[in-house]
Amino acid sequence: MNSLRILVVEDDYFAATRLTQEITAAGDVVVGPFADVHEAISRVGTVQAAILDVRVRDETSFDVADSLFRSDVPFVFLTGYGPKVIPPRFQGQRVYAKPSHADPILHDLHQQHRQNVPQDSESMETIVLDMIHRSCAVMPDRASADRLVEAALLRAIADTREGRIPDDIRPYMMALLDEEYRLRGRTYLH
């Protein structure tokens, strides 16, 4: 199962920390967690799924949900208030009671994602997301992981211009990432 970039909107520090740890342990990448709906909305274009606490500080996450819905990004709600607080426009969305373990939520999000996206394991999007996931596993923080992936992608772009890209792109891209980490991984730490 490919990893997903999952937006987490949760304002309770302990719940957000637990959810983040469980998502990461399952092999997915957490974007956030965010305790501000406006900041979360700005990240909708960078994720493949989302977990939204319904009540976030003095607001609701329904604006984030609207943005996700328009972008065809699967999401679920978390709430301690029960499903009756969900507006009618989201009646088809899954609602999980707080606190919930991440496993059933992640299973649900992966299933929704598979239904929304054609299953092309060789799509460039899937390959780059796998590169990000691998990079997050070897680098100490997200910023250095992103710099490592960016460097590997820049090398691939340069190779493309010179006509040196093989037909089987996944192993090639992963090898570029591994080589970049081995040769220059430390330089991306700062």
Rank of each mutant, 00 (worst) to 15 (best):
Q93M: 05
L68N: 02
H190I: 14
R43A: 14
D120V: 02
S121M: 12
I157L: 15
L78V: 05
L176Y: 00
G27K: 04
G163Y: 10
Y81W: 11
V128N: 00
Y81N: 14
D58L: 12
I41D: 15
P33V: 00
R94W: 10
I105S: 00
T17F: 11
A65D: 08
S67H: 14
R184P: 10
R94M: 13
T79Q: 07
S67R: 15
L7K: 04
D12Y: 07
A102I: 00
G185F: 06
F62E: 09
A102Y: 01
L148F: 05
I105M: 01
T20D: 00
D12Q: 12
V8K: 00
I86P: 01
E162K: 00
D146T: 15
Y96D: 10
Q115E: 10
K98N: 03
R142D: 15
V76R: 01
I169P: 08
A145M: 13
A175W: 01
A156P: 05
I165E: 03
D11T: 01
R57F: 14
L189E: 14
A16K: 02
L106H: 03
A152Q: 07
R170N: 07
H101D: 12
M173K: 03
I127N: 06
V54F: 02
Q48I: 03
R170T: 00
R134Q: 10
T126S: 14
A152K: 02
V76A: 05
L7C: 09
I132W: 08
P104Y: 04
R182Q: 11
Y81S: 13
M1G: 12
M1N: 12
P74D: 04
R170S: 07
M174I: 12
S123Y: 03
L183S: 07
F34G: 01
I165W: 02
D66N: 05
F34D: 11
A175P: 02
G163R: 04
E150P: 09
I86H: 02
L153N: 14
H38E: 15
V37F: 07
T160K: 08
V37R: 11
R57H: 13
L106T: 01
P88E: 11
L153P: 08
D120M: 00
N2P: 09
I105F: 00
H133E: 13
V149G: 04
S121A: 14
T160Y: 10
I41E: 15
Q93V: 05
S61N: 13
Q48H: 09
R161W: 10
P87T: 00
D178L: 00
R94D: 10
T46E: 12
S100D: 12
R182H: 11
L109G: 06
E162L: 04
R57W: 12
A49T: 07
E125T: 10
M173C: 02
R170W: 05
A152D: 15
E180I: 00
P104C: 02
V85Q: 07
Q93C: 05
V117G: 02
D36R: 08
A145P: 15
A175H: 01
P99V: 05
H101I: 06
D103T: 06
P99M: 06
R55D: 11
L52Y: 06
A158K: 05
L52S: 07
S100G: 08
Q91K: 03
Y81V: 06
D53T: 01
V73E: 11
K84Y: 08
Q91A: 06
K84L: 08
I23P: 09
D66C: 03
P118H: 04
Q112T: 01
T126H: 14
D141Q: 09
I6C: 07
V117Q: 10
V117K: 02
I6Y: 08
V95L: 02
H101L: 08
D12H: 08
P140I: 05
